[in-house]
């Protein structure tokens, strides 16, 4: 293979590219070693927004891993406190459809039959508009409503709420408000189902 021949050039070109790509891969591997994010650790960090303490994945039992007959939201994960002496605390990662950009994900803490705290898990609503449906003051409307057997989930209204379970939508952000309500309702229905099935056992 003479220097300057076509074959020489092709081989050298390929060789240089392979070496560059190899060095790049090695560098990325090194960085990954130091900066890898463990998904469980990520969840634990995000869960700290709604629950003060370590959480573990809820051992999903047969039949209560999904919200029954509900197509507007989904349960993506259920977590309970690592400390087993703490009872009746469930942290749910839920997805709600109908958001401005498809769907959004929330973390919902249900303690003692009530929602006590909600936080955003992943959502990209328009800042200043849809984001207002992801603020603490809006989430507060869902909190402390007893989830009893006859409670069928939250309803969105455009006037001041008059009945239990009614939530006032954020004006200008009805899509985001709907998605949040869908996500919260998925959590509510899951909780009711879990409690009903748990009670029969």
């Amino acid at each position: 293979m003479r220097k300057g021949s076509l074959a020489y050039e092709i081989v050298m070109t390929a060789l240089v590219l392979v070496i560059i790509a190899g060095a790049a891969g090695a560098l990325l591997g090194l960085v990954h070693h130091f900066a890898a994010v463990d998904p469980e650790e990520l969840l634990a960090r995000k869960a700290s927004a709604v629950y003060d303490g370590a959480v573990v994945r809820f051992p999903l039992q047969e039949g209560i891993s999904q919200t029954p007959d509900y197509d507007k939201g989904d349960i993506l994960g259920v977590y309970v406190p690592k400390d087993e002496s703490v009872k009746d605390v469930y942290i749910l990662r839920v997805k709600g459809t109908g958001a401005y950009k498809g769907s959004l994900e929330l973390l919902v803490n249900i303690t003692g039959g009530k929602i006590v705290k909600i936080a955003k898990y992943e959502a990209n609503e328009t800042p200043g508009l849809g984001s207002k449906a992801l603020e603490e003051s809006y989430f507060a409307q869902y909190c402390n409503v007893p989830i009893t057997e006859d409670f069928m989930g939250f309803d969105l209204v455009k006037t001041d709420p008059s009945a239990r379970g009614e939530v006032r939508a954020v004006s200008g952000a009805s899509k985001s408000s709907t998605a949040v309500t869908n996500a919260v309702n998925a959590a509510v229905l899951w909780y009711k189902d879990m409690r009903a099935k748990g009670a029969t056992k």
Partner: peptide, 25 residues
């Protein structure tokens, strides 16, 4: 070192590497 004919792919590989580093960090 970078052959002139394939300089753009080589640049993109180098840039992408550093972007991924930033992203991971």
């Amino acid at each position: 070192v970078i052959p002139n004919r394939v300089r753009i792919p080589a640049y993109v590989v180098i840039i992408a590497t550093f972007v991924t580093v930033v992203q991971m960090v």
